[in-house]
Amino acid sequence: MASPEPVQVVKTRRDAALRALVEGVPYIQFLGITFDRRGDELTSVLAYREDLIGNPAIPAIHGGVTAAFLEVTAIVGLTWASQWDAIEGGQMPIDENARPRMPKTIDFTVDYLRSGLPRDAYARARVTRSGRRYASVHVEGWQDNRERLFAQATGHFLMPPSDG
């Protein structure tokens, strides 16, 4: 029986694939969104900055920033989930030279549950349905407390045509 892969090999491969999905996208860098990976689970992190504010009187994070943060989380989460077998199988190396094509947003609906406080925000996406052509993704966003969401969203996506 083949011995299991060394943990560093596994981590290097997964982290390279994640970097390829995230670092090549200017808008993700513009907002300062990073991804924390634990196994196949991704948590996106929006580090607070003054220029993310939409209402200086409260102050609160711009509703558009919240929408964008959740949409980025949904797209990266969906791409990540749909590429997981390829990443793990190693038959298709994913790195900065070979980025998978991204799903296209069909529609995206955001519920604003609380105002976004001037501090870091986190989000996780769950792919609720993933077909060959269409996918549905739900995203939850929170700040200090995982149980107290400040926003949630549902989106539908058109999957890129598979080359196979």
Binding site: V25, Y27, L31, G54, H62, G63, G64, V65, A67, A68, F69, E71, V72, T105, F108, V110
Partner: peptide, 11 residues
């Protein structure tokens, strides 16, 4: 990115 369009629409 769609998110930037969302920010414009929301504003």
């Amino acid at each position: 990115h769609g998110g930037a369009v969302s920010a414009l629409m929301d504003t």
